[in-house]
Simulated scan of single mutants.
Amino acid sequence: MQMLFKLLFCLGVVAAIAYCTICLYLYFQQPRFIFFPSSVIERTPESFGLPYEKVWLPVPATFGKVEHIHGWWIKANQLNPKVLLYLHGNGINIGANVAHAKRFHQLGFSVLLIDYRGYGRSEGSFPNEMRVYQDAATAWNYLVQQRQIPQKEIYIYGHSLGGAIAIDLAVKHPEAAGLIVESSFTSIQQLVTARNMFSVFPVNLILTQRFESIKKVPRLKMPVLFIHGTADSTVPAFMSKNLYAAAPEPKKLILVPGAEHNNTADVAGLQYLRWVQSFVEKVQALK
């Protein structure tokens, strides 16, 4: 019996050490469970017949270094001050987002697509929450200061994780024209809970990448459009419902029946363009 007790005690100690080790690993490595960048750009705007300009935006980094964000400026065909800052999700890079950006271009937007540091051709180390916020702010400043776009003509669009980045930027820049948030979540903690991930670990204690959009949307000062597919298995649609409920007016929520995480516009077809156009018209009417 004494030997059994010692064996069980030793096993308990080993299990406790292993558990703590995993917690420490998750604490320090969690960005790698959230961000999935690729350095390979498979498509450019040229692939879709869109003339574009490459942009390189300097971002102050640690120890006095300067890193550069890579992006594409796709100018509208007609004379129109309307601009869309496109913030993509956590996977791949801007090359996987050109087809969707083309939809906004069809609606008369000039579009700025950027890759966060660590994605595509952008410089820098592996991304994290604070860096992507800084990258989005750098893109905003580029539009305002270098392109001299009136702030009231800039719409901010974000898909999935990009939606959380877009919300953060919109709160900091209430002078923006409007905000479009597609297939996004309330917070990383609530997303982990909803998907029943890492339930045996003290997620709230070890979480450093929080993206707490649900706490930010009540501070929005601009019209916001939420879009979400009802069949989204990556981010459940109730999260956009909760974001919508927490956001002030004017606001609109569109749920796309049968759409998954990355295909709301494909499923909706031309109706997607009509929703965005209607949103823009309402924004213009409020001015």
Score class of each variant (00 low, 15 high):
G158R: 13
A18G: 14
H68M: 07
Q2K: 04
F35V: 00
Q145I: 10
G120F: 04
E42S: 07
K251E: 09
Q134I: 12
S47R: 06
P60T: 09
R210I: 03
I74Y: 14
Q145N: 13
C20E: 03
Q30I: 11
A237R: 08
L24K: 04
I254F: 06
L113D: 12
S47I: 03
S199C: 01
V40D: 06
G120S: 02
L50S: 13
G163Q: 06
V181M: 04
S278E: 09
S122M: 00
E123M: 03
V55F: 01
E129N: 03
F211R: 02
A96P: 02
I34Q: 02
P223C: 03
I74M: 15
I92P: 00
K215I: 01
P127N: 06
L253D: 00
Q277S: 14
P51I: 10
V144Y: 09
I167E: 07
R43T: 10
L107P: 15
A285H: 11
E260S: 05
L24V: 05
N204R: 15
L220D: 15
L286T: 11
V83L: 03
I156M: 06
F33N: 06
N128P: 00
D135V: 02
S183N: 07
I69K: 03
V13K: 01
A285S: 14
E182F: 08
R43E: 12
N80L: 03
A61L: 03
M1Y: 01
A76P: 04
E260P: 00
A139L: 12
A99F: 14
E129Y: 10
L7A: 13
M3T: 03
Q189W: 12
G120W: 05
P218V: 11
E67S: 00
P250I: 06
L85G: 02
V256K: 09
L26V: 10
V132L: 10
P223K: 01
I154W: 13
I149N: 04
R274A: 14
K75N: 05
K65E: 13
F126D: 04
A61Q: 08
F28T: 12
H228C: 10
L286W: 10
L220R: 14
L57E: 04
V14R: 02
N90I: 03
I254Q: 09
L87G: 08
R121P: 00
W73D: 00
Q271A: 07
V283P: 08
K241E: 13
Y27I: 10
Y272G: 02
G71V: 04
G258Q: 09
F185Y: 12
S47T: 13
R131T: 12
N80T: 09
